[in-house]
């Protein structure tokens, strides 16, 4: 059962990663990479690593995404 769940989550992660790399819109790409972080935190949980899952959930999906958006906002400001 867990294997099926892991496979579904894996498809979501791979699609998210592909979208993050190939999308022209930067905001959509950054959100997609946040989804990859979120899904990978669930994968860590399935592999019996709750410590890693906790860190990845707060860093991979929240803090990294936020820092990317701060950078993007700054770049738009500089643009005028």
């Amino acid at each position: 059962m867990l294997t099926v769940l892991a496979a579904i989550l894996g498809i979501a992660a791979v699609v998210g990663a592909y979208y993050a790399i190939h999308n022209e819109k930067l905001t959509a790409a950054i959100i997609a990479s946040g989804i990859v972080g979120m899904v990978s935190s669930i994968l860590f949980l399935l592999l019996a690593a709750p410590d890693v899952a906790m860190t990845e959930a707060s860093i991979g999906s929240a803090l990294t995404t936020a820092i990317f958006f701060f950078t993007l906002n700054k770049i738009r400001q500089t643009n005028g």
């Binding site: 059962m1 867990l2 294997t3 892991a6 496979a7 989550l9 894996g10 992660a13 791979v14 990663a17 990859v36 990978s40 994968l43 399935l46 592999l47």
Partner: peptide, 15 residues
Amino acid sequence: DQYLGQVVMAIGFIL
């Protein structure tokens, strides 16, 4: 669930 490790490793590989 004997292939869980392999499945997750394949996902990590593709990522």
